[in-house]
Amino acid sequence: MAGTKETFSDAELISCFMNNTRTDAALRFMYRDHFDLLSRYVFNNSGNEQDAEDIFQEVMVAFINLVKAGRFRGESSIKTFLFSLNKNIWLNELKRRGRAVAREEKYERLNDHKELTADSIMELRQAKNDLMKLIDELGEACKKILLLYYFENRSMKEILATLPYENEQVVRNKKSKCLKKLEMNVSTNKALYRQLKNYLHG
């Protein structure tokens, strides 16, 4: 039960998320290493247990996406970076809830830059439900093909082995059709489109 728990250096964590290897283990390590500290910040600043958990999930999603997009390459330690993300996302959440503290004005000034700010991450958080809905609308088959290909980096051959299609070309055509459908759906949701685009160009 108490099996060995893998440990990772900062460089190893970045490499895992960049190359999509051992990502579950890397995530578990990050929970063990950072959840207490980050949730304490939320607790100490008007948050409750559920807030701390929600914000930590947002931090993890944002961090992984930034690493995958090549936007975080270890310029500061992961601990420092996560602390900063957690703080900014939580302050934005407070602001969103209309319980902004006096500190906020200063925070706004500090973060007035072109980078992917917590603001945009938070908007993305709000758009999370839209995204879920939009992907669900694609249907199970499309969702599966796109996830296998673009998220899990599986080859057409591997995908063919898990889905009931005649040959690779059929899978390829289906994948293109699904991606076009998704592209159309995302383009109609301006806020979501803008936020996703933010992750792209570093």
Partner: peptide, 28 residues
């Protein structure tokens, strides 16, 4: 091209969100 890239980013983001939610439940 950007539109297509955004669409692939959407699916990646969705995948990451699902993965984090799964690990989150375990870790909690």
């Amino acid at each position: 091209l950007t539109n297509l890239q955004v669409a692939t980013q959407a699916i990646k983001h969705f995948g990451t969100t699902q993965q984090v939610a799964f690990v989150h439940a375990q870790m909690m």
